[in-house]
């Protein structure tokens, strides 16, 4: 198989980690070898770190710190895990990167040796239209400028437990409109399993629906 790399970028709390896990597990279920890489250098909470044991059990190769290996967690930003640097050299299958938020956008990808020159790199912007800075087409287009390269958008519109099909579909329309202006595809609409079941395979704009199982409530600290 051809190795591929997918990186999920976006705003603080846009749902990048949740999407990265969902995507990695879906690829794993197709029988592919998958590495899930924690590139969040900002946020000591809600990251892959506390979940890695569980995710390994599901067959993923998780590259992230163990909490007990870290010192001063969150105090001075996160240290880069040494294995992240060389993941492209070592790993033969799919590599899914969870990129933390910050002013640097996708520049963080430069920390993975060779990644920015990697031919089959796809960077996807995760968008929740319930966040004020990405609430409409205009704002999403502005937000997307921060990320280069960028290969697609993911609609992750939700309000936690209050999420409805209507809300997700409304988000899908906004993200679709922004994507058109950016000349980028909408890769998927992500929705909690219960919502996704009601939506079916495709969202209102004809983009695939990724059913999302929430892991992050288990990930705090």
């Amino acid at each position: 198989m051809l190795r591929r790399v997918e990186a999920f970028v976006g705003e603080h709390a846009a749902g990048k980690s949740e999407i990265a896990i969902t995507r990695a597990l879906a690829l794993r279920q197709e029988g592919l070898p998958v590495a899930l890489v924690d590139l969040d250098l900002v946020e000591p909470t809600y990251t892959l770190r506390p979940l890695q044991g569980r995710l390994r059990e599901e067959g993923l190769d998780v590259i992230a710190w163990e909490t007990k290996q870290t010192l001063g967690l969150g105090e001075a930003g996160m240290q880069l895990h040494p294995q992240v640097k060389g993941v492209l050299l070592r790993h033969s299958g799919y590599v899914v990167c969870d990129v933390g938020y910050g002013v640097y956008g996708s520049e963080v990808l430069a920390l993975v040796e060779g990644l920015l020159d990697f031919p089959r790199l796809s960077v996807y912007l995760v968008v929740n239209t319930c966040r004020p800075l990405t609430r409409d087409e205009e704002q999403i287009v502005v937000e997307a400028q921060r990320f280069r390269p960028l290969h697609g958008l993911i609609n992750n519109t939700h309000l936690g437990a209050e999420t409805t099909v209507e809300l997700v579909q409304q988000g899908a329309r906004v993200v679709q409109a922004a994507a058109q202006r950016l000349h980028l595809p909408v890769v998927a609409t992500a929705a909690l399993v219960e919502v996704a079941e009601q939506m079916g395979k495709w969202d209102v704009c004809g983009n695939p629906v990724w059913p999302l199982k929430r892991y992050m409530p288990l990930a705090f600290w």
């Binding site: 709390a13 319930c130 004020p132 309000l159």
Partner: peptide, 14 residues
């Protein structure tokens, strides 16, 4: 008025 989904620190800024 709008429902929004965010972190506590962001709420303070807004």
């Amino acid at each position: 008025e709008q429902r929004a989904f965010m972190t506590g620190n962001e709420v303070i800024a807004w």
